[in-house]
Design a protein around this nucleic acid. Sequence first.
DNA 1: TGGGATTTGTTCGTATGTATT
DNA 2: GAATACATACGAACAAATCCC
Lengths: 250, 250
Amino acid sequence: MSKKSTRVEFACQALRRAIIEQALPPGTKLPEDELGARFAMSRTLVRAALAQLQSEGLVDAPPRRTATTAKPTLEEAREVFEVRRMLERDVVRLVIARWKPEFGAELEGHVREEETAHKAGDARVSGRLAGEFHVRLGQMSGNRLLRRYLGEVVSRCSLILALYGRPHSADCSVKEHREIVAALRGRNADAAIAVMEHHLGLVEHRALSDRGRDAQFDLGAVLSRYAEPLDGGGASKVTRLPRRKLGAAK
Amino acid sequence: MSKKSTRVEFACQALRRAIIEQALPPGTKLPEDELGARFAMSRTLVRAALAQLQSEGLVDAPPRRTATTAKPTLEEAREVFEVRRMLERDVVRLVIARWKPEFGAELEGHVREEETAHKAGDARVSGRLAGEFHVRLGQMSGNRLLRRYLGEVVSRCSLILALYGRPHSADCSVKEHREIVAALRGRNADAAIAVMEHHLGLVEHRALSDRGRDAQFDLGAVLSRYAEPLDGGGASKVTRLPRRKLGAAK
DNA sequence: TGGGATTTGTTCGTATGTATT
DNA sequence: GAATACATACGAACAAATCCC
């Protein structure tokens, strides 16, 4: 609720976007000292930011180990999508119930943004905007808690896409989002929910159907299929933040 | 997810229960030093615990002010209940879909616990157990994220009850919970959802219908109805933790 | 409206516990 | 498997902001 402080909120936003846009792949280390230097703030506030992101499921921060961007298991990923489908259904219901004429224009404007980002070839930004479309819907539900939960699962879905999914296809999402807007304009809750569920089904499919890629993260499953040890497939390597002299940000 | 540390988790649990059982009324100050002394841990970990509770909506921790137990507005309270109704509906669906015979016995056992606590006259414990009944259902949904969200809103509902509600009536909740268990055993989702919605409607009514009490926390509304200043109705007094020499816990 | 007391935010040094070699 | 390097946890001390009288 009440922001712990603007600076903490700033760091959260920056990290959140970096994670969502896949600039910080799952498993990336996030040492407190380094983040503090980057954001010019004390570890006290860095910890607050990391705690916040941990509560959102974007960061793993075990007891005495350095925090990392989260690496949800395939099962957790499915659970996140399951909750997301439930929340989005209710969001559609509420948005239609509280529909205002300006909603249509706002959503259309957003989809146009997605479209231009897509045409500009910026896959990261268009992926982020695709998520933000749903968060805007959450906002329009008029329920701040629902909006928060939806924002959380949408972010986590982006993370999951980074882990298991094939590259984001802005093409599809723009088209599907237009269909959702049209369905909402119709003010028929059941019909709009059907469109939304169809869309989410496709998103989940894009995120989780690619059986070939997730396996590399499920060591047990890999070892049961291949007798020989892993020879370090490139994608399994953890990308580290570049080292940086502490205090240089002084 | 991964516990920040057992000690932090312990402090969280203790504070959570104290808040839920209304031992720490909304608005109670929670100074870091004092909590650290009580729980024999450094401010570092106390802050982690407070951050966690803040993310759960149980604690308010504005920038440079001392943390307090949360005082949600009436509007926020309604939003929490709205989300709760949505989540519980989905929980019922999932629990029925994944029903196992032992669920019935487990739930019945829990209701019996509620009953004995009620007969023992321990209103605080029976209020907590009433909440935990729903959290157990969340557990049975098999979706850990859903369980987390449900646990959060149930806790917040307890807080809201402390703020605005009339004293918890264990009598009703035991009876209503029995009805829910019976409906779940029937394995008819729509019927069970109807029973659950009925129950939640009553809970919300008990929590928010009592217009006389909430007003004291909505200063504007009070002043618009009464010209004379408040003369400190007993219930509006904030109970403080007893002062305590720091370091005494050494 | 001011002034003292309290409490958070910050930094540093040290210790302890993980990771890595 | 042991030793080294590294990062978090802790305590104290200080400054700054806030609260309360």
